[in-house]
């Protein structure tokens, strides 16, 4: 779905503002969107964003029609080789480049290879991290709760809690650059009172 987002809207009377916004959205939907949709159809772009006056419009190609699509940032990259995790030969310094990454001088913010870590909220995109009120340590959250946003070219992308729990440390300073998949907020998992059936899975 196309999303629209106004910029620089301070100091305007709210009622007038809203009316003008509705008119602008209607105009964008009628005039700009069909042209943009057609344009997206003719290019190889997965996503497209344009500025129209003080509006930004983003189109994203729908995923989920081919294998590997619709993967969420919280999923692990599905390496094609079976048994990849266990084959244990040494890699030549795969971590070296991360030390220099923007906004992460400690170099330990990225998820290591392995199973999805349900105890850390990760970045859905490359952009600027803005923690929200529920990212404060000690806050009780449910899976899917909004912890903050990552700003991608003025478009906020949601950072959500991966599981029920209590918010722990925030691993990245507010307003710093983060990469896709970067660990942002730790969640202390709430251990269920009665354990589920034993012997499932592996």
């Amino acid at each position: 779905m196309p999303e629209a987002d106004p910029q620089h809207r301070e100091q305007r009377a709210e009622g007038v503002d809203r009316q003008a916004d509705h008119a602008a959205i209607a105009r964008l939907a009628d005039e700009l969107l069909p042209a943009l949709i057609a344009k997206l159809g003719t290019t190889r772009l997965g996503e497209l964003e344009v500025r129209e006056g003080e509006w930004r419009v983003r189109l994203r190609r729908p995923f989920g029609t081919a294998p590997g699509e619709g993967r969420r940032s919280t999923d692990r990259p599905s390496r094609s080789q079976p048994g990849h995790e266990g084959h244990g030969h040494a890699r030549p310094t795969p971590e070296a480049h991360r030390v220099a990454r923007a906004g992460d001088p400690s170099g330990n913010g990225s998820r290591p290879h392995g199973e999805p870590d349900r105890s850390v909220a990760t970045s859905p995109a490359v952009g600027i991290f803005r923690p929200g009120a529920r990212a404060a340590a000690g806050t009780r959250v449910r899976a899917g709760d909004l912890l903050g946003t990552v700003d991608v070219l003025g478009m906020p992308q949601e950072v959500t809690a991966p599981a029920d729990g209590i918010v722990g440390a925030t691993l990245v300073e507010p307003e710093t650059a983060v990469e896709y998949g970067q660990e942002l907020v730790r969640i202390e998992l709430v251990v269920p009172a009665s354990p589920g059936p034993v012997g499932e899975g592996h």
Binding site: G46, E47, R58, F63, E69, R71, S78, Y180
Partner: peptide, 16 residues
């Protein structure tokens, strides 16, 4: 890192 392996959400994503 700009996105998942699917190129449409990484190497082909203009915003990313």
């Amino acid at each position: 890192c700009i996105g998942p392996p699917d190129a449409r959400r990484s190497y082909l994503s203009a915003p990313a």
